[in-house]
Write a protein that binds this DNA or RNA. Structure first.
Lengths: 348, 348
DNA sequence: GTTAGCACTCACCGGGGTCGAGTGCTAACT
DNA sequence: AGTTAGCACTCGACCCCGGTGAGTGCTAAC
């Protein structure tokens, strides 16, 4: 009796499909009529009763229909993932949106989040690529002012970091250039981390420029540390269109969460090497998202860094559509970063 | 009968105060009791009737209290502004939030928006400074890759713009430096706009580097154009706490508006030279904000550029509090940019 | 000019009744 | 044994309704 057979599965699937579409508890009659399996409502009822016992269905109250549990969704997407991604029809839509010229990293990220939310009608999150410590390729000092210079560090992943530091007044453009060459020679090929450690060793060579080294040190320290990823978010307010978020309190706490970028980033961040992650309801581990699902995919850059794109929506998400969109979007981004062999700096 | 006298004004003030606090239509009895002016409810009623005729009060339905009209708020804040800003007690709170070290421009902007929304409990918007065309101080090319270089342009307002452009393969670091010096010599003191026009004249001098000039040209063109200001927003979801936005549809359209940065920026952007702007309800000129008010203030940088900070909330906003907070916040930002005489680059 | 009094209006609230979708169970049918 | 028709039952959604109370406008008296 209690075992999950082929027919139960088909019924469950129908229930999930219907619920995803309507957000209304679905009854036995609906299934037997709209999804013509040659069974009467009574039979469906029996099966549904079994499915509830197995934990795949919940009943909000005695005389409403059933709604799928988190466990049901889990089963659903697992099957979906196994079967391979279905209709990749959205491919064109995604492609079309990337026609425009690729701009700076941040713009690409923002744009991607925008597109993703437009296509899915859910909230979209895009994390910039992170990965193996980038290695320094060039260090250059640009005069800004008397007593101030801009440090530009170019790394092999193309990411440019810069900041203004104070230097002693007497340094003119040529001197700065000479120092730049020394620094480049010494630090090339190192990670930022290593550079921090190496810096004291250079104090001898450049001891007249104590101030400069001091500033440089502070900058490197900061950059090498937790380089807070500037996550891009799109379609924050999309969630409000879904009846499960008609409750103001819920909506508020969700949107507040969306505002704390750091927290959001850590929630989204991919851990494993998997192409896709689907976290359903409680699996998100975030109380505010008790009835949300998070679907993420990865993309990568030429230099092997990995970024994450994700979609957040109600548990009754159109998983198949979302997965397919995420898939092509991931490919597009990967392509974008590949063809574009000189990688743009990450800022405005 | 129809003229606005001192007593009417006091009554109107009481009504506004009460409504701002409670968001509930306020009746004659409430006024005569809570705000002890030596008048009976009947008298208040008569006055209220007059005030309604004058257009300062609205009546949602016959037997509810009155609520202040946009015209009433207008009068209220005008009087507030004339009287000078009241209790600047929030000064400390603002100060406290700026203790931390000032970081890059974008961070400052973000942080300011955050603080502003926390203090006011409304939605806050901060526009980065814009102003007279910045003038070029230095142009420098930094090698990134074979065939690619980073262009860094430092302007007198300290803003640094950069991008990666393609150059011919044979250019090594020293050659790039030489070209940089030429470019700097030629372009120093020009605005970006002027630089675009001057560039063709340089083609003779640097004709071997057609590619470089081409890239530089594109970059300058882009930068000198509409440099879309990266507006920072804080407390987007705060608006949801106010009963006037209990309607989901309204909330949605508001939040959607908040997501289109460009539009928002153009709404917020200060036109005049005034220290404060208060736009109430219809005065905003944005249908989505029919029952919002926008209060803005300006701050300025050492080099005379001006930025805008603003707060968006329901029409029954705590104007006095908000004005006072905006005031000190503006001062703080101005101070911050003044002491900090080397201005930080505007990017990450 | 102010106030007490009064009739009137109308949103809001809670109770009761109806409706209908949906269930669980039983008995009959294949 | 599995499937189905039938039926009683449950319970939320909706509507109607009268009571309540805050608030008004008007009038007459102070």
């Amino acid at each position: 009796m209690g075992i999950m057979d082929e027919r139960k599965f088909r019924i469950l699937q129908a229930i999930i499909d219907d619920y995803i579409l309507t957000a209304v508890p679905v009854g036995s009659r609906t299934i037997s009529k709209k999804y013509d399996m040659g069974l009467s409502s009574a039979t469906i009822r029996n099966e549904m009763s079994d499915l509830e016992e197995l934990g795949y269905l919940d009943q909000p109250h005695v005389s409403a229909g059933r709604i799928p549990s988190a466990k049901a969704y889990r089963l659903y997407v697992d099957q979906l993932l196994q079967a391979g991604l279905l209709h990749s029809d959205s491919e064109d839509a995604v492609r079309a949106h990337f026609r425009g010229r690729r701009r700076q990293m941040e713009d690409v990220i923002d744009h991607a989040a925008q597109v993703l939310s437009n296509l899915t009608h859910y909230t979209a999150v895009v994390l910039p690529p992170t990965g193996p410590q980038p290695r320094i390729r060039t260090v250059q000092l640009v005069p800004v002012n008397d007593g101030a210079a801009l440090v530009v560090i170019v790394t092999d992943s193309g990411i440019v970091r810069d900041t203004v530091i104070r230097v002693s007044d007497q340094l003119d453009s040529d001197t700065l250039y000479a120092i730049s060459k020394t620094l480049t020679a010494e630090l090339r090929g190192r990670t930022l981390q290593e550079a921090v450690e190496l810096l004291p060793a250079l104090t001898g060579r450049l001891k007249e420029n104590e101030r400069l080294l001091q500033g440089l040190n502070a900058f490197l320290n900061e950059s090498s540390g937790v380089s807070r990823p500037r996550v891009a978010i799109g379609g924050r307010s999309n969630i409000l269109s879904y009846p499960e978020y008609n409750d103001m309190e819920k909506a508020r706490s969700f949107l507040t969460l969306m505002e704390t970028r750091d927290k959001l980033a850590s929630i989204i961040a991919q851990q494993g090497e998997m192409a896709f992650t689907v976290r359903i309801g409680p699996e998100t581990g975030v109380p505010e998202m008790a009835d949300c699902s998070i679907v993420t995919a990865t993309y990568s850059t030429r230099s092997g860094q990995q970024g994450t794109i994700g979609v957040i929506g109600p548990t009754r998400m159109q998983y198949s559509r979302v997965l397919s969109i995420l898939n092509t979007m991931g490919h597009q981004l990967t392509e974008l970063f590949a063809e574009n062999n000189l990688q743009e700096p990450e800022q405005k």
